[in-house]
Amino acid sequence: MIHQLRIYEIFDRNKAAFHARFRDHAARIMARHGFRIVALWETASTGRTEFAYILAWPDAETKAKAWASFRADAEWAEIKRTTAIEHGDMVGAIEDRTMTPTDYSPVLD
């Protein structure tokens, strides 16, 4: 099992729209492509608002295939297109980290 940490810079001007899009659309479509969301947070760091979440994957190959499938999803592409027209850019910088447990790490589900 590996975990993936994603951190998105989000903007106060359209933060509510970002959260609605992730909650109502991205999470649902991700589930359809095999994503397992462990937890989600809003955080602040160095003067910016961030959205952070952790995904659980059985292995790196599954993670890569699921992301490719999600990015190619026509429904997701259309949602991103229409929300960008309505609300502008909703995500700035993105950080992506794959976290592999140490041999002494407690077991996480």
Rank of each mutant, 00 (worst) to 15 (best):
F11A: 02
W67R: 04
R32I: 04
P106Y: 07
A84H: 04
H19C: 04
A77G: 05
A77F: 00
A16S: 12
D109N: 15
M99A: 14
E95W: 08
R71Y: 15
A31T: 05
G34D: 02
H19E: 08
A20V: 08
E95L: 13
R23E: 14
E42T: 14
T46K: 13
A17V: 01
R21T: 07
E61M: 12
A39H: 03
A93N: 11
T98A: 03
A17H: 07
R97C: 11
D103L: 13
A60W: 07
E75W: 15
R71K: 12
I29C: 10
V91W: 01
R6S: 00
L108G: 05
K15E: 10
F35Q: 06
E61G: 14
H87T: 05
D59H: 10
I2A: 03
R28A: 10
F18I: 07
I10W: 01
Y104N: 06
A16M: 03
D24T: 00
A26S: 13
A64S: 15
A84S: 07
W57M: 08
T49P: 06
T62Q: 11
E86F: 01
I85E: 15
A26D: 09
D103P: 13
D89M: 08
G34I: 07
T100S: 14
I85Q: 13
E78M: 11
T100V: 15
A27T: 12
R6W: 00
H87K: 05
E50A: 11
I7R: 02
A44Q: 05
K63I: 00
T102C: 12
A72M: 05
P58H: 13
D24W: 01
A44P: 00
Q4H: 02
R6K: 02
Y8P: 01
R32M: 02
F22C: 09
T46C: 06
V38A: 07
I85D: 11
A26M: 10
E42I: 01
I10E: 00
I94M: 15
R97M: 15
I2K: 06
M30K: 10
M90H: 14
R36G: 01
G34Y: 00
D103S: 14
L108Y: 13
G88T: 02
T83H: 03
E42K: 06
G92Q: 12
A56W: 11
A56T: 11
P106M: 09
A39E: 03
K63F: 11
A16H: 03
G47N: 09
P101M: 09
Y8W: 08
V107E: 07
M1N: 02
T98S: 14
W67I: 13
A31R: 11
F70L: 14
K63D: 03
